[in-house]
Design a protein around this nucleic acid. Structure first.
Length: 616
RNA sequence: GCGCUCGUAGCUCAGCUGGAUAGAGCACCAGACUUCGAAUCUGGGGGUCGGGGGUUCGAAUCCCUCCGAGCGCGCCA
């Protein structure tokens, strides 16, 4: 891969459905609103069959507006031929009789603001305690199969820092999708065909000769100079001794190439493992060409039959002048028929296929394997490639008659590596990259993973090696992990009052579920319960939008609420979680802490970050 | 020149696929605490959401157009 970053993958777009209302209180309230509307239809206040799909229930920005707000009246008003505020009042009147609703007020242009009774939030906490690690799990995915392709770094060298972000992003997104009911396949596309791996083979061959004692001098231009190929050379020397040296390149190259790629991929997998990034499938580009069938030729033939391939000429590129531009007729994919800016070549001048040709075949292969939803995670330097692959997928849709096949390409922006605010120097030209391994070894996988996800994927990111291991509030990784550790510390201390408190989460949660939760009436406690209640909704939205960063921000907010409540106990000792002479309130508060800890652990788990029992 | 991604507080960034008076952290200001219920806490000031048009009940969010930044621009992957 040429760029500093590599390619990755992303994508499906799906409407939120009626969710599991036992966990998701917003979905439960939406059901109540629909029921109210049904009653209004019976009353004749709303027409039969009115479209309710645009109704949403969401937390208002302004907490003074209550616990949740709905736009129901505003989206129904037009079809109902009623004024939004009048309709809102009618719906609100129905809702007021609901057991969980404390207040239903009409506001602004026709919002209905709802305030729920504390028992609603206590119910939410009970749901957390009952579900444990499964709290937030959903089935919006409905078991549909999704392919998430990420990393896919060229097997020509070790992974460098630029690969971190896509790797972590893809991995966390896959976790998130699996958690929300998608059948996820995590895939790595190995670019093991083409000129670059031949260059790798030649470089490795030099190292092989070197390992046999030859003086190879400087590594020629165009080959890979890195020391990381020395072990490959040594391995080849052990395996073949001098046998390869006398062979022609055509003979040794495939052998050396195969062995070198194998060893590079071994190292890459190893490095990924250090970041806790895993894949289910490593898909070889070469297998498309050299498998039982030549899938690339087949594909081009199929596209040609459909009229999407032709022989023609391309205008020279504008802007940056291309030195050896040669105007010639070539085999082109009619990408412009699918929204791309220009038609794209499928064959090089030497008669071999372009990378793009393989890539179309690769995406068709995914569709053939049953994936209707494909997500590609790529580095920003491949942004210019998106349109043509989207065009390719459109063509694949057409020739395979699979209208539902969908590709979402997620672009992750550059990561700027800093140390205490100063850019970390690396010389691209000399091949001096900071490797992924070096970074993980220096700061640990958790800071890398969390910080890579504590930003929207398409925003660029500064990663400061010094700041991410700081133990202070300024460091979100620490702040969130400390929240979890602090919760555990409360449990440890609580044994002074409740000697029987189990150390294991599940039995502890079930014991605490029996606590008198109605005694949780402090504003901070209610705020925490509200925050916990948001989690299932947040998870679903993050999954559907393919945006795992939302989890990281949510966790920060939750940890922040939790630390705040803890701190209130410093000034107001009656608010402490552990009250020596009142085991009942202690139990109730421990239940709340259990809820917090459960959700922190769940969210961190999705991000692939540890939830430690103590900070060391 | 074209395309893609961005542009939100002094700085770093959120803003839940169009909702109400746009949020958080840092920094700044003012208080509190003098400590293992440690790895600070509470409150406050601070904004033409890059500019200008448009769409509609309603726009940071969608469309158009400028400005600015990053990335990319046959036969590399």
């Amino acid at each position: 891969m040429r760029g500093f970053l590599t390619r990755f993958r992303n994508c499906v777009r799906r409407r939120p459905t009626q969710a599991m209302s036992d966990q998701n209180i917003f979905a439960a309230v939406l059901d109540k609103i629909r029921a109210a509307n049904t009653a209004l239809i019976k009353d004749g206040a709303l027409p039969f069959g009115i479209d309710q799909s645009r109704i949403v229930v969401e937390p208002p920005r302004e907490s003074a507006h209550g616990d949740m707000a709905t736009n129901a009246a505003m989206v129904l008003a037009k079809d109902a031929g009623a004024k939004p505020r009048v309709l809102a009042e009618a719906i609100a009147a129905k809702l007021r009789s609901d057991d969980l609703v404390a207040k239903a007020e009409v506001a602004g242009p026709g919002f209905i603001n709802l305030t729920l009774k504390p028992k609603a939030w206590i119910g939410a906490l009970r749901a957390v305690l009952a579900a444990g690690a499964n709290y937030g799990r959903s089935n919006v995915g409905g078991g549909s199969v999704v392919n998430v392709e990420y990393v896919s770094a060229n097997p020509t060298g070790p992974m460098h820092v630029g690969h971190c972000r896509g790797a972590v992003f893809g991995d966390a997104l896959a976790n998130l999708l699996a958690f929300t009911g998608f059948a996820v396949t995590r895939e790595y596309y190995i670019n093991d065909a083409g000129a670059q791996v031949d260059a790798l083979a030649r470089s490795a061959f030099l190292r092989y000769r070197q390992a046999l004692g030859e003086d190879i001098g400087p590594i020629p231009e165009g080959l890979y100079p890195g020391d990381y190929l020395k072990p490959v050379g040594a391995e080849l020397a052990t395996e073949y001794s001098a046998a390869l040296r006398s062979k022609l390149e055509a003979e040794w190259l495939p052998l050396v190439r195969h062995r070198a790629i194998e060893m590079m991929m071994g190292q890459i997998r190893n490095d990924l493992l250090a970041l806790k990034v895993v894949h289910d499938v490593f898909f070889s580009e070469r297998s498309l060409l050299e498998g039982p069938r030549d899938q690339v030729s087949e594909l081009i033939a199929a596209l040609r039959r459909a009229g999407y391939v032709y022989e023609g000429r391309l205008p020279p590129p504008k802007g940056a002048p291309v030195e050896d531009w040669e105007d010639r007729e070539q085999t082109l994919f009619r990408a412009t028929a699918f929204g791309d800016d220009v038609d794209r070549p499928l064959m090089k001048s030497d008669g071999s296929y372009t990378y793009f040709a393989s890539d179309i075949a690769y995406h068709k292969n995914k569709v053939d394997r049953g994936f209707r939803s494909m997500i590609d995670v790529w580095g920003a330097d491949h942004g210019g490639y998106v349109k043509r692959v989207q065009a390719a997928v459109s063509a694949v849709r057409a020739i395979t008659n699979t209208p539902t096949a969908d590709l979402d390409v997620k672009i992750v922006q550059l990561v700027k590596l800093l140390r205490s605010g100063e850019p970390v120097k690396m010389s691209k030209r000399a091949g001096e990259f900071v490797t992924l391994r070096e970074v993980v070894d220096e700061v640990g996988k958790d800071p890398v993973r969390f910080m890579m996800l504590y930003r929207k994927n398409d925003a660029s990111l500064d990663f400061d090696l010094a700041k991410v291991i700081e133990q202070s509030r300024d460091n979100p990784v620490f702040y969130v992990q400390y929240g979890h550790a602090r919760g555990q510390s409360v449990f440890r201390n609580a044994r002074e009052v409740l000697a029987q408190l189990p150390a294991e989460p599940a039995p502890r949660a079930s014991l605490l579920a029996g606590a008198p939760l109605e005694r949780l009436e402090d504003a901070g406690e209610l705020a925490l319960m509200r925050r916990l209640a948001l989690y299932p909704r947040l998870i679903e939205a993050a999954a559907l939008a393919h945006e795992p960063h939302r989890i990281a921000f949510y966790l920060y907010d939750l940890a922040s609420d939790f630390h705040a409540q803890w701190n209130r106990g410093k000034d107001a000792s009656y608010l402490r979680f552990i009250i020596q002479n009142d085991p009942q309130i202690t139990m109730a508060r421990l239940a709340l802490v259990q809820g917090v800890v459960t959700v922190l652990a769940s969210g961190l788990g999705l991000l692939g970050v540890e939830a430690p029992d103590e900070m060391r």
